[in-house]
Amino acid sequence: MRLTAEKLSGERGGETIFAGIDIVLAAGGGLLVTGPNGSGKSTLLRILAGLLPPAEGVIRLEGGSEEWPTVAAASHYLGHQNAMKTALTVAENLRFWRDFHGDPHLDVAEALEMVGLPGIGSLPFGYLSTGQRRRVCIAKLLVSHRPVWLLDEPTAGLDAGSERRFAGLMRAHLEKGGILIAATHLPLGLEGVGELRMGAGR
């Protein structure tokens, strides 16, 4: 499996904010997208996910066969928001996303244990702290299988211990042949991955 993007440019409000970005990631490849605020990190991720149309360029997922025809279909997208309902319990939220996304991977309880939150499945999501919410959201990546992870500031609100645990999860994902693109301005503790510095040219 290979994710390629050629000559990608993106615009926001009718204004080009980046242009000519090429990305080639093979299975097991990771990429950190870094740069100052407003340099277009989130926009790049949203374009890669297919939520925004690229102003120019093409994005392809090669070798995904019929199961993963497009990047959008093959991706977990972790945005700024957690995509969880505060009125539902943690387990209800996770179970919904597992059923909706299909391809169940880990059990809800197992996934919660992986992010260090065992036994909180019955609590309403709204009762959790910011960091705990983010970790539940990370658990969402584990309950159904997707080869591509697109992560937008995944560690926002996490403490040092959780960051280390999350780095371990990302490493495990890469070792299993997954692809990972993360926009961040914090070091994620990942070695041997490429870095794309946005907004450097200007």
């Binding site: 996910a49 939520l51 997208y77 928001q81 995509a83």
Partner: peptide, 16 residues
Amino acid sequence: REDGSLDLLVLADGRH
């Protein structure tokens, strides 16, 4: 939209 679920619903277009 406010909690980000809408993005995921839109992204799941190929499946649902």
